[in-house]
């Protein structure tokens, strides 16, 4: 099982994309994974979801556990290096693969170059669609107003800002309503939110208020961790704003239950 199974379509001339769903999407929000797969296929690629994927290793890496982070990185390299592209519906996990693995594995002779090679073909979902595949419009409908939160890693490590907004603007029926300071952190920060819950809460409380003040009915973002944090706060505070991953809205899958709603 652990050898990468490459999707059918070999020789079809279509790029073969390995979808790295991320552990949160895998466990909490399969809809996002299916939406991402649909978008990648619609962009003219073949998608495969290798079964041996787990987590990109951020919890270990950001907690100072470099050895485990390296072991996880090696395993991700092995799982995904056979694809033409690796696409990730998360800015922070994509940045882990593309910005941090090369540094993590730099002094591992067996993996240094492979990590570099993987980094070069790994992309966050909206950046892949817009920058790599040249997709500027999607075929989707979504009635209502949407506000977009720039998750930190995607924005600052991968410069993802324009791509999701341009794509969202192309969705029929959708109005994009910017919140103030969409680039300010939501207070998630991976393990930060459980290690320093009070500080995290202060940050997300402020964020939830700015989201609500935008007047938008739906919050979208490209990272499920941040979305779960903000959605959890919005619902705890009794605010009516719903939350979805940007992939779902772009893939015309914005009809089902939003994050945290009963299925």
């Amino acid at each position: 099982m652990s050898s990468p199974e490459i999707a059918g379509g070999k020789g079809s001339g279509r790029p073969r994309v390995g979808l790295f769903a991320t552990c949160l999407v895998d466990l909490f929000r399969p809809e996002t994974g299916f939406a991402a797969a649909r978008l990648i296929e619609a962009a003219g690629c073949d998608v495969d979801v290798p079964e041996s994927q787990t987590c990109c290793g951020q919890p270990a890496y950001n907690s100072g556990d470099r050895e485990d982070a390296k072991a996880i990185a090696r395993q991700v390299v092995e799982t995904f290096e056979g694809f033409d592209y690796v696409v990730v519906p998360s800015g922070s996990c994509a940045a882990t693969l593309s910005r941090h693995y090369p540094e993590l594995l730099a002094d591992d002779p067996a993996f240094a170059r492979r990590a570099e090679a993987l980094a070069a073909k790994t992309f966050e979902l909206t950046a892949f669609l817009y920058d790599v595949m040249g997709i500027t419009k999607v075929k989707a409908r979504f009635a209502g107003s949407v506000t977009y939160h720039d998750a930190c890693s995607g924005l600052r490590e991968l410069s993802i800002q324009k791509q999701p907004r341009e794509l969202l603007q192309s969705v029929e029926g959708l109005t994009l309503t910017e919140m103030t300071d969409p680039d300010v952190c939501c207070g998630f920060g991976g393990t930060f939110c459980v290690k320093y819950p009070e500080i995290s809460n202060a940050i997300v409380t402020k964020k939830a208020a700015t989201i609500a003040a935008s007047g938008a009915e739906t919050l979208v973002a490209g990272d499920l961790g941040c979305l779960m944090n903000m959605a959890g706060k919005l619902s705890r505070d009794g605010r009516k704003v719903r939350a979805r991953h940007v992939a779902e809205v772009l893939a015309d899958m914005g009809e089902g239950p939003a994050i945290g709603e009963a299925k």
Binding site: R29, V194, P197, N201, V204, G232, K233, S235
Partner: peptide, 11 residues
């Protein structure tokens, strides 16, 4: 640490 301040979406 999470649920004291916010709801946790169900897996």
């Amino acid at each position: 640490g999470w649920t004291r301040h916010r709801d946790l979406p169900a897996p």
